[in-house]
Amino acid sequence: MVQPSSPSSLTPQFCFTTSALREFLRLSRSSVDDTITQNLNALETPARAGFDPTSTSRLGPRPLSRHIEATKCNAFKDKVLFPSWQARSDVLSYCSVVATSPDPDDPEAALRQAEQEKNRERVVDERLDPYSTRVFPRQARTELLADIIRQEIRVENIVRSRTWDIVRQRCDSQAHASWEDALADWRASKISPEAGR
């Protein structure tokens, strides 16, 4: 069974290194969500009913509507799917907080400040150059990170919706119509046993 991936430690530097952030999200999605059909196929017990000789006379792939045992599906969801989603949610939540927090360590802050001063002192004559009023200031790295986080959250919602549709088809899961409800119930089940300790 595939193991969910998680970043080793969350630091603002991890978030600002957007290539590392995106690589973590990509690897996590590719190991669980992008291969959900293969992961679910691995849960099936092959030839449980014995070999069917007529299976060799059929052309085309077998139908994917076959359901997997509920205990195996639940174990996969509880040990792989939901922890993977939770790890990505934790990273995106942490990085969104970093993106909205002040950034005293921004290496380009002085450069942006100098550009702003230069733009204020600039004399603009639109008659000579109608484009001279256009100024494209550098974005702070927190603004760039916020844009990336918004984009990744949209991608995450699409990926989870697609994955949950496949899980519901294969696992005959009628309990939760949406992945949001299923994940919320899983989170609640993780909190309630710990509260009783």
Rank of each mutant, 00 (worst) to 15 (best):
P107I: 08
T18P: 03
P137I: 13
A114S: 08
R150E: 06
V97T: 12
E108C: 03
F24S: 08
S28K: 03
Y131M: 14
E108I: 08
R197G: 14
I153T: 13
T71H: 09
E117K: 15
D34A: 11
L144H: 02
L59C: 05
S6E: 13
R120H: 12
F16R: 04
N74Y: 07
L59H: 09
L64W: 04
I148S: 00
T100V: 03
W179Y: 10
R187G: 01
A20M: 07
S57Y: 07
F82T: 02
D125V: 12
D52Q: 08
D78W: 01
R134A: 09
R154E: 13
R127A: 12
P7V: 15
T17Q: 14
D147V: 06
W164G: 00
Q116M: 11
R197C: 15
S57G: 01
R138P: 00
D185A: 15
R58K: 15
T45L: 15
R62E: 10
R134P: 01
A140L: 12
D105K: 06
D33E: 12
D181T: 09
S8M: 13
I148W: 03
F16G: 04
E194Y: 07
A175S: 12
Q169V: 14
S6F: 08
S189T: 12
S31M: 11
A195T: 15
R120Q: 14
F24D: 04
V155H: 11
R160K: 10
V159N: 03
V135H: 14
L183P: 00
S55E: 11
L128Y: 04
R154H: 06
T100L: 02
L40C: 03
E156C: 10
R58S: 06
P53K: 08
W164K: 03
A70E: 14
R26P: 00
L128P: 00
T142R: 06
L183Q: 05
E117L: 14
I153R: 13
K118P: 00
D185K: 06
E156T: 13
N39I: 07
V155E: 09
Y94I: 04
S8C: 10
Y131D: 08
P46A: 14
R170W: 01
A70D: 10
P63I: 07
R22S: 13
V98P: 02
V91W: 01
P12I: 05
K72C: 05
R122L: 12
C15L: 07
Q38N: 11
P83R: 05
S84C: 10
R22C: 12
L21V: 06
L64I: 06
A75E: 11
L43V: 01
D181I: 08
D172S: 15
L128K: 10
E108G: 00
D129G: 02
A109Q: 09
T133H: 15
R48M: 13
P7R: 02
R127P: 01
S132N: 06
R170C: 07
S5I: 09
